[in-house]
Design a protein around this nucleic acid. Structure first.
Lengths: 212, 212
DNA sequence: TCAGTAACGCACTAGTTAGTTACTTCTTGC
DNA sequence: GCAAGAAGTAACTAACTAGTGCGTTACTGA
């Protein structure tokens, strides 16, 4: 007698791997490496826990895979900006707006990076793909700065890495510490007016930093 | 027969509490709330685990106590700066230098704040002492800005909270993400020259932001 | 001086957790 | 059409972990 039954899922290694990775990203972002539970990741991925060990080897290696993917995602998004088609001022402002929007739209990126650094970066070692992507990103900013200096709108001698760090910092810090910030400073950090104000302040900060 | 024996420790509730709190701060900073182990904290404090539950109630309440202490510590240090005796420019530069030095000298503060925010601030709720301390800090910066505007060295209309956040951000981000930063940007973030450069860049950033 | 109380410690428990064993089921290249 | 390997599953384990029960030891105030 054949009653209504769940179909066994079509077998698809790539899809299963992707579901595990997505569930892991969400759980590691929400609870950190130590706080996340492998069983919970398996459940969220609608996969068997054994599959996690089959595809990724260990909890730490899964975390490693999540981190690499998260970094490649943001570096890819940055490349799609095509800032070299814009005048230097517009290009830089667009980069500041993009960075801010990316953190807002991908809050798990921030907590993953925090977790990676809590563990002193040991899950990110020697990934040549990441280093290449970062190099390309720094060159992109360097080029904007060079064009700005040539046009006499930016002052010379600005280190593109320091500038990058600052652009990231002024958005990242506000968002990662929004909970303690909201409590200590008695204002809602996530209210839309507050977000607007912060973005405007950040654009102003960066422009005053680079303008000739 | 009395052989050589450990003396039972003199009983001192405050000392035991303080040792537990110090050990907890170190462990929570190093491993996060989920990663820290109550047994390890007890061992590091040379205390019995039972004492932790006696004095603090639970692992989460111990974490709460560590966080409140960490915030009160930095706010107290800030108050000792006595910036109101300095001309506005010097006062602001001193604040930037202080913030940077505090993070460098108290790296556990940064990871504790990150952990507090990973848990969405729920361990920091409704501490009136902290709110009072924060208010006093914002007033301090507001006063520097006001004096600067009166002296025509600072431009008017700067929000002291936004300025505070930025001053914290540009130091905090660099240091908290120094591990991934070192890997991605292929430079040692903690080398003394790198630290100097970053501080100089940050002072420059803040000055360009506020100067008239 | 001694009873009451606070500090302290041992040994345990109930529940969890990363990782594994031993198996079945599906898919694919020949 | 079928062998072989890959995908998938359930049940298990050994180690761990927050929290506790219950007893002992040192202070302290009356």
């Amino acid at each position: 007698m054949r009653v209504v039954e769940e179909q066994p899922r079509a077998r698809d290694a790539n899809a299963t791997k992707a579901r595990i990775l997505a569930a892991a990203k969400s759980e590691f972002a929400r609870l950190g490496l130590a706080g996340a539970r492998v069983d919970e990741i398996a459940m969220q991925a609608s996969a068997n826990k054994r599959m996690i060990y089959h595809y990724f080897g260990s909890k730490e290696d899964l975390f490693r895979a999540v981190l690499v993917e998260a970094y490649l995602d943001i570096r890819n998004a940055e490349q799609e900006l095509e800032l070299d088609h814009l005048p230097p001022r517009e290009a830089l402002e667009r980069l500041v707006r993009f960075t801010w929007a990316y953190y807002l739209d991908n809050p798990e990126f921030i907590t993953l990076v925090n977790s990676a650094n809590l563990h002193r970066g040991k899950h990110l070692e020697k990934s040549e793909r990441l280093r290449t992507a970062s190099r390309r990103f720094v060159s992109m900013v360097q080029e904007i700065l060079d064009r700005g200096v040539a046009d006499d709108v930016f002052r010379p001698g600005i280190d593109p890495v320091q500038l990058n760090i600052t652009i990231a910092a002024i958005g990242y810090y506000y968002l990662t510490n929004r909970f303690t910030g909201t409590i200590l400073f008695e204002r809602d950090f996530m209210e839309s007016k507050a977000l607007e104000d912060r973005l405007a302040f950040n654009i102003d900060t960066v422009m005053r930093l680079v303008l000739a």
